[in-house]
Amino acid sequence: MAEASMMTDELKKLIGVPGEAITYKVEEGAIQRYAQAIGDPNPLYNDVEYAARSKHGRVMCPPGFTGWPVKASGVSMFKLVEALVKAGAPPRLLDGGIEYEFLAPIGAGDVLTATTKVADMIEKEGKSGKFLLATVETTFVNQNGEVAVRAQASFINR
């Protein structure tokens, strides 16, 4: 007996549709608090004067930090996953991993525009049954119109 597919029409409709773009400024203090939370003493993140004398001329973000994300990546990503659950995806969510491409450096004072979408979603069969694997892509474009970071996160709904 064939089980019904988890991939409902409502879910299929969400694939490829970008969420609302969010524009915000990367704050120096947010960078420093993030570096401290990792335990990374790199002076490019922590020392304002050192960073100002570097080739970047400003406090830089550690890789993967794109500004404090209440308005950006993390939250819009999880909102998107909530939308998936509302559209019929199973509710137990696992963060599967992430893949970053760093295309331009990001530092304090940069203004980023983040856009998130479900790039792909497939139904898979694992040891403990069927699950949905969603690839959620967030693109961060800086004030010069360059794509600074592209992040592809994997979420498993089971």
Partner: peptide, 21 residues
């Protein structure tokens, strides 16, 4: 990320990073 940036030094550039939980 910290592992890689410490290793490559300030003139190195991290281009890609991925991991699975």
């Amino acid at each position: 990320g910290h592992l890689m940036t410490d290793w490559i030094g300030e003139q190195g550039v991290l281009k890609k990073l991925s991991c699975q939980y």
